[in-house]
Amino acid sequence: MRTLLATTVLSALIATSAQAQEELKLYNWFEYMPAELLDKFTSETGIKVVMDTHDGNEALLAALKAGKLGRYDLAVPSDYMVAILGHEGMLDTFTADEIPNFGNIEPKWLDVPFDPGRHSSVPYQWGTTSFMVNRKLYDGPIDTTDIIFNPPETLKGKINVLDSSGETLALASLHLGIPQCSTDREQLKALNALVLGAKPDWASFGSDVAKDVLVSGDAAAGMIWSGFGAKARAENPDLEYAYPRQGYIVWMDNLVLLKDAPNRKAALAFMNFMLEPENAGALSNYARYAPGVTGAEAFVDADLMAAPETNPPADGNGVFVETCPQDSQVLYDAIWTNLKK
């Protein structure tokens, strides 16, 4: 009884102190949010932001699965992980009128496949995944995925691919023109044969090192994310980012409203804050990717907005990595293991 009483008093105390200083708990990627923006939010709303960081979508999912759900209000996952979190029932929903700035979302990012109509997420940053080629070593056409999967003689043995089955197999599927989540035997056999056949032409599999190997010249061509590629080009001007005609990968990181959020109101206030063009622009200047917010361009550094890596052609060839159902995902895993055995 005494314990119960003590607990009640204690939780009442905590509740009071929380009212005194409202708190928002954000689970974000590392190095993905400038401290100034959080300070600005606090000074505007009086809500203190507590941010924890994760190092990947799968790490985020694992943490939420392991019992962190209910401890955070907001998280920042990529497109396909938004779909997975939604499917796992880990997201809460909101309506457009709960977020005054909802209308600032760029129309093309409104009806996205991973959250049609945007009921749980708002844009954070977006970019593309493709490859870069060192133009000093190869001056032929690079607007084709042949560079990676059927490389010209001069590039053979000097190619780095991302060490991530999702992106590498998605690009290979685009090369073959087959769906990303196929269960068709012939298509999967062709995919398996394609990557096995291309592997001898690849020097390495690496994601963290994707920029480093291109800058140093260890790789003459390599898959890379757009913003990372822009940084690589700053260090080695011979590099050119390609937009292959068979297609390339588009990704978007998003702020999502988590289920059982301790402070849902503050979470919506923060989403609203990040949809303010000035704030979205400040975020881009820090993270070096494009905002998905109308009017934010005016606040983004001119060189970032002008960079070829930030400006995919309007050819509609960019596609999101899809979230495959289990029966097809296990096949892609088997192909990946077979590739690296």
């Binding site: 990947g56 799968e58 790490a59 694992a62 060490d163 089955s165 999702g166 592997k199 690849w202 020097a203 390495s204 599999f205 690496g206 090192v209 289990q326 995902q329 296990v330 892609y332 895993d333 990946w336 293991t337 690296k340 055995k341």
Partner: peptide, 25 residues
Amino acid sequence: DLLGGAKTFMIGSLIEEQFKGAAGN
């Protein structure tokens, strides 16, 4: 991973992939 180019799995990276990879097993 860093010196061998991660072209082939070692026991360590095979295990890691089961916990960090797309499907997770």
